[in-house]
Protein backbone atom coordinates (compact mmCIF):
# COMPACT_ATOMS: atom_id res chain seq x y z
CA UNK A 1 0.00 0.00 0.00
CA UNK A 2 2.74 2.42 0.95
CA UNK A 3 4.18 2.06 -2.51
CA UNK A 4 1.17 3.89 -3.98
CA UNK A 5 1.99 7.12 -2.11
CA UNK A 6 3.54 9.76 -4.41
CA UNK A 7 7.17 10.33 -3.52
CA UNK A 8 7.23 14.16 -3.67
CA UNK A 9 6.41 16.27 -0.57
CA UNK A 10 3.19 17.91 -1.78
CA UNK A 11 1.81 14.85 -3.55
CA UNK A 12 2.64 12.59 -0.63
CA UNK A 13 1.19 14.99 1.90
CA UNK A 14 -1.99 15.44 -0.09
CA UNK A 15 -2.39 11.67 -0.42
CA UNK A 16 -1.85 11.11 3.30
CA UNK A 17 -4.20 13.94 4.22
CA UNK A 18 -6.98 12.56 2.02
CA UNK A 19 -6.47 8.98 3.02
CA UNK A 20 -6.25 9.58 6.76
CA UNK A 21 -8.25 12.78 7.25
CA UNK A 22 -10.60 11.20 9.85
CA UNK A 23 -7.58 10.50 12.06
CA UNK A 24 -6.31 14.06 11.63
CA UNK A 25 -9.72 15.59 12.31
CA UNK A 26 -10.10 13.50 15.43
CA UNK A 27 -6.78 14.95 16.60
CA UNK A 28 -7.85 18.49 15.70
CA UNK A 29 -11.07 18.02 17.64
CA UNK A 30 -9.24 16.93 20.79
CA UNK A 31 -6.60 19.63 20.40
CA UNK A 32 -9.33 22.28 20.17
CA UNK A 33 -11.37 20.81 23.04
CA UNK A 34 -8.34 20.73 25.32
CA UNK A 35 -6.91 24.11 24.43
CA UNK A 36 -10.25 25.96 24.50
CA UNK A 37 -11.49 24.39 27.74
CA UNK A 38 -8.10 24.78 29.39
CA UNK A 39 -7.80 28.43 28.36
CA UNK A 40 -11.21 29.21 29.85
CA UNK A 41 -10.55 27.27 33.06
CA UNK A 42 -7.06 28.78 33.17
CA UNK A 43 -8.58 32.25 32.92
CA UNK A 44 -10.74 31.56 35.97
CA UNK A 45 -7.80 30.13 37.90
CA UNK A 46 -5.84 33.21 36.84
CA UNK A 47 -8.55 35.57 38.10
CA UNK A 48 -8.67 33.77 41.43
CA UNK A 49 -4.90 33.64 41.92
CA UNK A 50 -4.42 37.20 40.69
CA UNK A 51 -7.02 38.50 43.13
CA UNK A 52 -5.17 36.72 45.94
CA UNK A 53 -1.86 38.18 44.77
CA UNK A 54 -3.25 41.72 44.48
CA UNK A 55 -5.35 41.73 47.67
CA UNK A 56 -3.98 44.18 50.18
CA UNK A 57 -3.58 43.51 53.84
CA UNK A 58 -5.34 46.37 55.59
CA UNK A 59 -4.48 47.45 59.11
CA UNK A 60 -8.11 46.81 60.06
CA UNK A 61 -7.83 43.07 59.34
CA UNK A 62 -7.82 40.79 62.33
CA UNK A 63 -4.73 38.76 63.18
CA UNK A 64 -6.43 35.68 61.76
CA UNK A 65 -7.40 37.40 58.48
CA UNK A 66 -3.85 38.63 58.01
CA UNK A 67 -2.54 35.10 58.52
CA UNK A 68 -4.99 33.63 56.02
CA UNK A 69 -4.14 36.27 53.42
CA UNK A 70 -0.42 35.71 53.86
CA UNK A 71 -0.87 31.94 53.59
CA UNK A 72 -2.81 32.17 50.34
CA UNK A 73 -0.37 34.74 48.99
CA UNK A 74 2.48 32.33 49.61
CA UNK A 75 0.52 29.44 48.12
CA UNK A 76 -0.22 31.48 44.97
CA UNK A 77 3.43 32.44 44.60
CA UNK A 78 4.55 28.82 44.89
CA UNK A 79 1.93 27.78 42.34
CA UNK A 80 2.94 30.46 39.83
CA UNK A 81 6.66 29.88 40.21
CA UNK A 82 6.28 26.10 40.14
CA UNK A 83 4.22 25.90 36.99
CA UNK A 84 6.00 28.63 35.09
CA UNK A 85 9.40 27.32 36.06
CA UNK A 86 9.01 23.73 34.84
CA UNK A 87 8.24 22.41 31.34
CA UNK A 88 4.64 21.38 30.73
CA UNK A 89 5.83 18.05 29.32
CA UNK A 90 7.36 17.25 32.73
CA UNK A 91 4.25 18.45 34.56
CA UNK A 92 2.12 16.23 32.31
CA UNK A 93 4.07 13.03 32.97
CA UNK A 94 4.49 13.76 36.68
CA UNK A 95 0.87 14.72 37.39
CA UNK A 96 -0.74 12.13 35.14
CA UNK A 97 1.15 9.22 36.63
CA UNK A 98 1.37 10.73 40.09
CA UNK A 99 -2.37 11.19 40.46
CA UNK A 100 -3.61 8.23 38.43
CA UNK A 101 -3.77 5.87 41.42
CA UNK A 102 -6.14 8.27 43.19
CA UNK A 103 -8.15 9.75 40.32
CA UNK A 104 -8.21 6.94 37.74
CA UNK A 105 -8.42 9.62 35.08
CA UNK A 106 -8.32 9.24 31.33
CA UNK A 107 -5.49 10.85 29.37
CA UNK A 108 -7.95 13.37 27.91
CA UNK A 109 -9.28 14.59 31.25
CA UNK A 110 -5.76 14.59 32.67
CA UNK A 111 -4.67 16.63 29.64
CA UNK A 112 -7.40 19.23 30.21
CA UNK A 113 -6.49 19.54 33.89
CA UNK A 114 -2.76 19.81 33.24
CA UNK A 115 -3.07 22.47 30.53
CA UNK A 116 -5.64 24.37 32.67
CA UNK A 117 -3.40 24.47 35.70
CA UNK A 118 -0.39 25.38 33.59
CA UNK A 119 -2.29 28.14 31.78
CA UNK A 120 -3.67 29.36 35.13
CA UNK A 121 -0.17 30.17 36.32
CA UNK A 122 0.53 32.29 33.23
CA UNK A 123 -2.96 33.83 33.30
CA UNK A 124 -2.47 34.84 36.93
CA UNK A 125 0.48 37.00 35.93
CA UNK A 126 -1.35 38.36 32.88
CA UNK A 127 -4.44 39.26 34.94
CA UNK A 128 -2.31 40.68 37.73
CA UNK A 129 -0.68 43.04 35.26
CA UNK A 130 -4.16 43.86 33.93
CA UNK A 131 -5.43 44.63 37.43
CA UNK A 132 -2.41 46.76 38.24
CA UNK A 133 -2.90 48.77 35.06
CA UNK A 134 -6.24 50.00 36.43
CA UNK A 135 -6.22 53.32 38.21
CA UNK A 136 -6.71 53.16 41.99
CA UNK A 137 -9.51 55.67 41.55
CA UNK A 138 -11.72 52.97 40.00
CA UNK A 139 -11.34 50.90 43.13
CA UNK A 140 -11.89 53.86 45.45
CA UNK A 141 -14.98 54.99 43.56
CA UNK A 142 -16.50 51.51 43.78
CA UNK A 143 -15.72 51.19 47.48
CA UNK A 144 -17.09 54.66 48.17
CA UNK A 145 -20.41 53.56 46.67
CA UNK A 146 -20.47 50.84 49.31
CA UNK A 147 -19.46 47.88 47.16
CA UNK A 148 -17.71 44.99 48.86
CA UNK A 149 -14.25 43.92 47.72
CA UNK A 150 -15.77 41.00 45.84
CA UNK A 151 -18.42 43.10 44.05
CA UNK A 152 -15.78 45.69 43.20
CA UNK A 153 -13.58 43.01 41.65
CA UNK A 154 -16.40 41.32 39.80
CA UNK A 155 -18.16 44.40 38.44
CA UNK A 156 -15.46 47.04 38.16
CA UNK A 157 -11.93 45.66 38.25
CA UNK A 158 -12.09 42.30 36.44
CA UNK A 159 -14.06 43.48 33.38
CA UNK A 160 -11.52 46.25 32.80
CA UNK A 161 -8.52 44.07 33.64
CA UNK A 162 -9.69 41.38 31.23
CA UNK A 163 -10.31 43.98 28.55
CA UNK A 164 -6.81 45.41 28.99
CA UNK A 165 -5.24 41.97 29.05
CA UNK A 166 -7.34 40.59 26.19
CA UNK A 167 -4.52 40.38 23.62
CA UNK A 168 -2.35 38.46 26.09
CA UNK A 169 -5.25 36.20 27.09
CA UNK A 170 -5.97 35.41 23.43
CA UNK A 171 -2.30 34.71 22.91
CA UNK A 172 -2.45 32.07 25.65
CA UNK A 173 -5.16 30.29 23.66
CA UNK A 174 -2.97 30.25 20.56
CA UNK A 175 0.00 29.05 22.60
CA UNK A 176 -2.16 26.30 24.07
CA UNK A 177 -3.16 25.00 20.64
CA UNK A 178 0.49 24.41 19.91
CA UNK A 179 1.54 23.30 23.39
CA UNK A 180 -1.13 20.64 23.80
CA UNK A 181 1.10 18.64 21.44
CA UNK A 182 3.27 17.70 24.43
CA UNK A 183 0.32 15.76 25.85
CA UNK A 184 1.17 12.95 23.43
CA UNK A 185 3.60 11.74 26.10
CA UNK A 186 0.68 10.68 28.27
CA UNK A 187 -1.24 9.28 25.32
CA UNK A 188 -3.77 12.01 24.70
CA UNK A 189 -5.07 11.54 21.17
CA UNK A 190 -4.53 15.16 20.10
CA UNK A 191 -3.24 16.27 16.73
CA UNK A 192 0.42 15.42 17.30
CA UNK A 193 -0.38 11.97 18.69
CA UNK A 194 -2.70 11.26 15.76
CA UNK A 195 -0.06 12.46 13.31
CA UNK A 196 2.52 10.17 14.85
CA UNK A 197 0.04 7.30 14.45
CA UNK A 198 -0.53 8.11 10.80
CA UNK A 199 3.19 8.43 10.23
CA UNK A 200 3.62 5.03 11.82
CA UNK A 201 1.09 3.52 9.43
CA UNK A 202 2.38 5.04 6.21
CA UNK A 203 5.98 5.28 7.35
CA UNK A 204 6.38 8.73 5.75
CA UNK A 205 7.32 11.11 8.56
CA UNK A 206 8.22 14.09 6.40
CA UNK A 207 4.94 14.13 4.48
CA UNK A 208 2.72 13.37 7.46
CA UNK A 209 4.20 16.07 9.64
CA UNK A 210 3.98 18.54 6.79
CA UNK A 211 0.23 17.96 6.88
CA UNK A 212 0.32 18.40 10.66
CA UNK A 213 2.24 21.65 10.40
CA UNK A 214 -0.21 23.06 7.86
CA UNK A 215 -3.16 22.11 10.09
CA UNK A 216 -1.55 23.76 13.16
CA UNK A 217 -0.78 26.84 11.10
CA UNK A 218 -4.34 26.97 9.81
CA UNK A 219 -5.72 26.73 13.38
CA UNK A 220 -3.47 29.36 14.92
CA UNK A 221 -3.80 31.74 11.98
CA UNK A 222 -7.60 31.56 11.93
CA UNK A 223 -7.90 31.96 15.68
CA UNK A 224 -5.48 34.89 15.73
CA UNK A 225 -7.66 36.64 13.11
CA UNK A 226 -10.86 35.92 15.05
CA UNK A 227 -9.34 37.27 18.28
CA UNK A 228 -8.19 40.38 16.42
CA UNK A 229 -11.73 41.00 15.15
CA UNK A 230 -13.15 40.61 18.66
CA UNK A 231 -10.54 43.01 19.98
CA UNK A 232 -11.29 45.64 17.35
CA UNK A 233 -14.99 45.26 18.02
CA UNK A 234 -14.44 45.99 21.70
CA UNK A 235 -12.56 49.18 20.80
CA UNK A 236 -14.98 50.48 18.20
CA UNK A 237 -17.58 53.06 19.22
CA UNK A 238 -20.38 50.63 18.42
CA UNK A 239 -18.85 47.99 20.65
CA UNK A 240 -17.15 48.50 23.95
CA UNK A 241 -17.23 52.24 23.66
CA UNK A 242 -20.90 53.06 23.41
CA UNK A 243 -22.27 50.95 26.20
CA UNK A 244 -20.82 48.11 28.15
CA UNK A 245 -23.69 45.82 27.25
CA UNK A 246 -21.85 45.00 24.07
CA UNK A 247 -18.58 44.32 25.84
CA UNK A 248 -19.65 41.53 28.15
CA UNK A 249 -21.19 39.73 25.14
CA UNK A 250 -17.66 38.89 24.10
CA UNK A 251 -17.18 37.43 27.56
CA UNK A 252 -20.64 35.95 27.97
CA UNK A 253 -19.08 32.98 29.72
CA UNK A 254 -18.08 35.33 32.52
CA UNK A 255 -21.60 36.54 33.19
CA UNK A 256 -23.95 34.75 35.51
CA UNK A 257 -27.16 36.00 34.00
CA UNK A 258 -27.75 37.18 30.45
CA UNK A 259 -27.27 40.73 29.24
CA UNK A 260 -28.67 43.20 31.70
CA UNK A 261 -30.03 46.70 31.21
Amino acid sequence: MTSRIPTDLLGGSWYIFQRYSPLFWYGVRNTLIISLTATVIGLFIGLLVASVKTSKISPKDSFFAKGVKKFFWLLSSIYIEGFRGTPMIVQAVFLYHGLRPYLQWTPLSAGIVIVSVNTGAYMAEIIRAGIQSIDDGQYEAARSLGMSTWTTNRKIIFPQAIRNAFPAIGNEFVVNIKDTSVLNVIGVTELYFQSASVAGIVFRFRDTFFVTAVIYLFLTFTITRILRVIELKMDSPAGFGLASSSMPNSFSFLKKKGGQS
Binding site: E140, A141, S144, L145, G146, Q160, L242
Partner: peptide, 21 residues
Protein backbone atom coordinates in the same frame (compact mmCIF):
# COMPACT_ATOMS: atom_id res chain seq x y z
CA UNK B 1 -20.02 49.14 53.21
CA UNK B 2 -23.45 50.06 54.49
CA UNK B 3 -22.13 53.35 55.85
CA UNK B 4 -20.34 54.21 52.60
CA UNK B 5 -23.53 53.66 50.62
CA UNK B 6 -24.97 56.60 52.58
CA UNK B 7 -21.98 58.87 52.04
CA UNK B 8 -21.39 60.16 48.51
CA UNK B 9 -17.85 60.90 47.39
CA UNK B 10 -16.80 63.12 44.50
CA UNK B 11 -13.19 62.80 43.40
CA UNK B 12 -10.86 65.29 41.80
CA UNK B 13 -10.24 62.90 38.92
CA UNK B 14 -13.93 61.89 38.58
CA UNK B 15 -13.21 58.15 38.69
CA UNK B 16 -16.13 57.20 36.51
CA UNK B 17 -16.20 53.51 35.60
CA UNK B 18 -14.59 53.50 32.17
CA UNK B 19 -16.16 50.28 30.96
CA UNK B 20 -19.72 51.43 31.62
CA UNK B 21 -22.01 53.95 29.96
Amino acid sequence: NHYRSQVGMIFQSFNLFNHLS
